Amino acid sequence: MRRWGGPVAAAMLLLAGGAVAQEAAGDPLAGRRLAGARCAVCHGNDGIAQQPDAPNLAGQSVLYTVAQLRHFRSGERNHEQMNILARDLTDAQIADLAAWYAAIQVEATVPGR
């Protein structure tokens, strides 16, 4: 395994931080409104799935949610319902949805503790 150090590592962190800041620029309240209108039937009002085949979105990382919605929108990732729902989402709406789901705090309990 190779370790990066010095200026290369600093540059990579700055670039990654810029990407996170850019993606995190969504408005969680706008995302909440949009999620209530488009996503809640399957993913729940609070991001906890209502359908057995839908994933929970509460607490999901902004970067992951943005990437997946863009993949659904472009058709790179296939799911009949999601491709239709994501097709007309703008980048701003995707950022808003991602900000909303990332803002929901989820608590995990490890068994046996």
Rank of each mutant, 00 (worst) to 15 (best):
L97H: 03
W100I: 07
N78S: 15
G26W: 04
F72Q: 00
A25W: 09
A25V: 13
R77P: 04
N78L: 15
F72P: 01
Y101W: 05
G59T: 12
L29W: 07
R73Q: 14
G31V: 06
G18Y: 06
S74F: 04
R87N: 10
A9E: 08
H79F: 08
C42Y: 02
R70L: 10
A24F: 02
R3M: 13
L85G: 03
S74E: 12
G17T: 09
A102S: 11
A11G: 10
A16Y: 07
G36N: 10
A16R: 13
I94G: 00
V106E: 07
G75L: 10
L89N: 03
P55G: 10
R77L: 07
S74W: 01
L57M: 14
A11Y: 00
G44S: 10
R113E: 11
G6S: 15
C39H: 03
D27F: 01
G112F: 06
Y101R: 00
Q93L: 06
Q60Y: 01
R73K: 15
N83D: 13
E80R: 14
Q81M: 13
A108F: 09
E107R: 15
A99L: 05
G75A: 12
A10P: 01
D91V: 09
I94L: 07
M82Q: 06
F72E: 00
Q50M: 11
Q93S: 10
R87I: 04
A24S: 15
L63T: 11
E23R: 10
G112H: 09
G31Y: 02
R38N: 11
L63Y: 02
Y64W: 08
R113H: 08
Q50V: 07
G44D: 04
G112S: 13
I48D: 05
F72A: 01
P55A: 15
Q105H: 14
R113Q: 13
D88Q: 14
L15C: 11
L13S: 12
Q50S: 08
L13M: 14
Q50A: 09
G6Y: 07
W100R: 07
G75W: 04
V66W: 01
A10F: 09
G59M: 11
Q50P: 03
V8F: 06
I94H: 01
L34V: 12
L97I: 10
A92Y: 01
L29M: 14
A10S: 14
V41N: 06
L97S: 00
T65M: 05
D88F: 07
V106L: 06
A9S: 08
A108G: 09
L57K: 04
A16H: 07
D53I: 13
R73M: 09
A40W: 00
W100P: 02
A98F: 01
S61P: 03
A95T: 09
A25I: 12
R87Y: 03
I84K: 13
Q51P: 01
L14N: 08
P111Q: 12
L14K: 12
G44Q: 06
V106F: 04
A9R: 12
P28C: 14
P55Q: 12
